[in-house]
Design a protein around this nucleic acid. Structure first.
Lengths: 190, 190
DNA sequence: AGAGATATACTCAGTTCTGATTATTCAACT
DNA sequence: AGTTGAATAATCAGAACTGAGTATATCTCT
């Protein structure tokens, strides 16, 4: 949702006025592990926040360098920030997990290949988790909660992959209702 | 990522040729708990898959009803489906969690309000979890793995919220480095 | 001091996504 | 038999997003 990106930018500009490039550098260096925001998207969002009156733009000219738009949060932006923050903290919007789609169609592959692929994923998760643990030490204490959050979900993900692998390893636990199509048969009328 | 939506549509059309409305009905009724795909987006994607040659469109005219484009997967689409499925199963793309952004700025609120908001979120997660458990019984066995997946992540999420609540409940565990700004100070040059 | 590489700072055209709307058919009711 | 309301089926303008590109400044090495 774009609204959380608004919250992010407002929160950062609230702590310190910045121009687009500076903001992008900060996000890339400090927050790449928890936000996915392309540079051009950040510029787009800054412009959007500006048009909506939540931040003010001021052209800065340092030395002989030409433009450089510096953004600072406005009073309206401060109010909006608080609204978005309260909204964010008090609700839960279930994310969409890409893995679900694969899980739905996984049985179309041979068990052997399926297991090979799922094991590859398991390793990918593990190595991602290892990278996060390294970050844990390198990043400021303010990020600890976010890292813990990711670690919890990564562990959940590993548990799930292991369940999938286990289910695929045993030939077929029990096939009572063998007449029910294993896939999704959307056939209705006609 | 749009690529998983492609996988979804190809997978569904693979099982059964369909027109857009039919596809949307199916997704809304059977998969709303794990995919978020607007109706107009589905039409857009069908058109895209068609332009890319992965599905073929055939205008159907039943009775005096006019339009109604029926989509059927092509051989190229079948190959693409398998590619996307293997890609999906063998990799892990860490999702972006909206809650992270709130966690980063949470300390800007008074502890009391923060706790109230987080408790509201905790209830939201719990009630979502309860809804899922109900679905568990109602949906076909093919969805079991996906539901288990969500339940695992929901439990992780509850654990994390509880950690946040606990951390905010105790006044302030230890404040050794009190000179370090609790927020993100992106100031560098200039 | 000039050439090439890297860093700074942003723009733009094209893609993807969605809320609002259109248009027709069918069922139900008066 | 006409009117209202729901269901069916899809379109479209506009918003959100991004990869590729532009342009200047500074740094490095010879």
């Amino acid at each position: 949702m774009s609204i959380d990106r608004h919250l992010l930018l407002l929160g950062l500009l609230r702590a310190q006025e910045m121009h687009g490039y500076q903001l992008n550098e900060f996000i890339d260096q400090q927050m790449n592990f928890c936000v996915d925001l392309k540079r051009s998207t950040a510029y787009y969002l800054l412009d959007k926040l500006c048009r909506d009156g939540y931040v003010a733009e001021e052209v800065e000219r340092e030395g002989n360098r030409p433009e450089r738009r510096v953004y600072r949060i406005t009073p309206a932006g401060e109010v909006h920030f608080q609204d978005l923050l309260r909204q964010n903290l008090s609700t839960y919007v279930p994310p969409v997990y890409a893995e679900d789609i694969g899980a739905i169609f996984e049985h179309h592959l041979a068990a052997e290949e399926s297991l090979r692929l799922l094991n590859a994923r398991r390793e990918a998760i593990q190595s991602h988790r290892a990278r996060l643990e390294v970050l844990h030490a390198r990043l400021p204490i303010s990020h600890t909660a976010v890292i813990e959050h990711h670690l919890l979900h990564l562990d959940a993900e590993i548990t799930w992959v292991d369940q999938m692998i286990a289910a695929r390893s045993t030939p077929s636990p029990l096939k009572i209702a063998h007449h029910v199509a294993p896939d999704d048969p959307p056939a209705r009328h006609e």
